[in-house]
């Protein structure tokens, strides 16, 4: 009970903090809208040039929804854990965190939860509604929304675990920028956030299927668009199951790595 209260306290603090970013919110919304327009026109032109309506099982609207919501999920899920941890390490603040009763990994998750809730409400939901209205019913509205919510939550945990698996590298090198860009590039490309996985050539797609990244963007979006048989239990459960498996595997790996990496602090004394 007390730990739940402790966690919700962090969530509340996070919400308060992100609300104080007044003007910033407006700017972000505006910039996102422009970004959406960019994606829209680019793909409209691409489809217009191709001469057919359906490419690799994706209609223009499917692709639009997929990419725009991928961007929205990107904004929603974006955590700066690598940067935060690197700064905490370089300033020595990390020691203070290690002294806190809540475990550091948990602490980070819950202190991000507030801003996650806020960005979900402030950017994801508006984007989702705008897309749903503009594409005039191209987003199926049914049970898939519920499965999508579940899948999105799992995606959040997978993404957090990827971040937490990468961030402790900061204990070994000061190259925060490098680590972050490598992580981001790999995740964005191989998860389908840049270009839908449906468009990937066969060989590349087979590789991507065995990597955790598609659990962050591709799976939730497929579930939402009822692609790849996810509109039936036989298709949905393995998809969600795969996400769950990645949550567990990455979390275990992250824990092992963190425990190993953190010994460096205690050995070196910061």
């Amino acid at each position: 009970m007390t730990s739940v209260r402790k966690m919700t306290a962090l969530t509340r603090a996070g919400i308060t903090e992100s609300l104080q970013f007044r003007l910033g919110t407006a700017v972000t919304l505006f910039a996102n809208l422009i970004y959406l327009a960019l994606v829209y026109y680019l793909w409209k032109a691409i489809y217009a040039s191709s001469g057919t309506d359906v490419v690799n099982g994706m209609t223009f609207y499917d692709t639009m929804i997929y990419l725009i919501l991928a961007t929205a999920i990107f904004n929603f899920l974006e955590m700066f854990i690598v940067w935060d941890m690197s700064r905490a390490i370089q300033s020595g603040e990390i020691i203070m965190h290690l002294l806190k009763p809540m475990r550091y990994r948990k602490y980070i998750f819950w202190s991000y939860s507030g801003s996650l809730v806020m960005s979900f409400v402030q950017t994801f939901i508006p984007t989702f509604l705008v897309v749903a209205i503009i594409t005039r019913g191209a987003i199926p509205m049914g049970w898939n929304l519920l499965s999508f919510a579940v899948s999105l939550l799992l995606a959040l945990v997978v993404n957090y675990n990827i971040e937490m698996l990468v961030a402790p590298i900061c204990l070994y090198t000061e190259s925060t920028w490098g680590i972050n860009i490598v992580k981001e590039t790999i995740v964005l490309l191989l998860s389908g956030a840049t270009i839908p996985l449906a468009f990937f050539p066969e060989g590349l797609r087979r590789v991507v299927d065995y990597l955790p990244f598609r659990a962050v963007y591709d799976i939730p979006l497929r579930v939402l668009l009822k692609k790849g048989g996810t509109d039936t239990w036989q298709g949905l459960l393995p998809a969600l199951g795969l996400q769950l498996v990645w949550c567990i595997v990455l979390s275990i790996l992250g824990n092992l790595f963190w425990n190993r990496a953190v010994k460096r602090i205690t050995v070196n004394g910061g």
């Binding site: 509340r12 919400i15 308060t16 609300l19 104080q20 007044r22 919110t25």
Partner: peptide
């Protein structure tokens, strides 16, 4: 002038 707490920061917005 910042206001206290959750409600306060909605006001601040």
């Amino acid at each position: 002038n910042r206001h206290e707490g959750l409600k306060g920061s909605i006001q601040d917005l």
